[in-house]
Design a protein around this nucleic acid. Sequence first.
DNA 1: CCCCAGGAGACTC
DNA 2: GAGTCTCATGGG
Length: 273
Amino acid sequence: MNIKYINNNIYIENDGSFDISKTFDCGQCFRFEKQGDIWQGMSFGRTLRLHEEPGFVVLEGVGEQEFTETWQAFFDLDRDYNAINCKLGKDSVLEKAIAVSRGIRILKQDKWETLISFIISQNNNIPRIKGIISRLCEIGGGVCFPTAGQILTAGQEGLAGIRAGFREKYIIDAAERVYDGRLELDALDKLDYTTAKERLKTVKGVGDKVADCVLLFAYGKLEAFPKDVWIKRVIDKYYGDTFDETRFSPYGGIAQQYLFYYEREVSKTSAPT
DNA sequence: CCCCAGGAGACTC
DNA sequence: GAGTCTCATGGG
């Protein structure tokens, strides 16, 4: 995508493949909020404010160095989503989904934060997930996502107010494994999808679905196709029991997110079955 | 009172 | 291997 650096702002030329609201509202990310026309949040220890102007997405107060270090990869800006949409759109279901979901970009988020966030997500709903994560961010005393060490220091007593329920012990197990080095999150990048997934599943409370979300939303591994209740609904409704996600290869993860967002949008405007 | 939510673990057969 | 129960919490 074409990038311009003007008046201490980054202007990302928008060909229709970057919708800020859809990207942050599609359930991959829990710590960005909209205030008026401006989205604000934090990732990798940096705060970001951004908004849309006709033909552009504007990152406010971001210099070239910060952009190339952090946000270029975060927003997956080197990937041509329009070209991918053309290929995926040959599937008749995805063609409809893309009409609604176009503009979603798969974020490449902090690995640790994504792991904990999706551990919290299990058998939970998105508003409540956001609340738990928000309270979790307060235990380090600040707005940053707490490190594994900070979570272990807080312990069960410190986590009690988070109201994570049965997921609390999973959070602590993940923190212990990352803190003592049994799980090296940065080492999973170079592993293939299947091996990396098996490594993540050594954490208690991490199964196929949570591992896939982490691999998709933090590692950019597009083979990951998280199957939650909504996607199972989509498969049952549009494809049937012969469904195989490799039909979307090598963009399965993007297809999954389009279908997830699409089905949730459809359910808002149609009568429940 | 019921059901459900971006599931996973333990248990049974 | 495939079915069930249970796990906290909050909203509808």
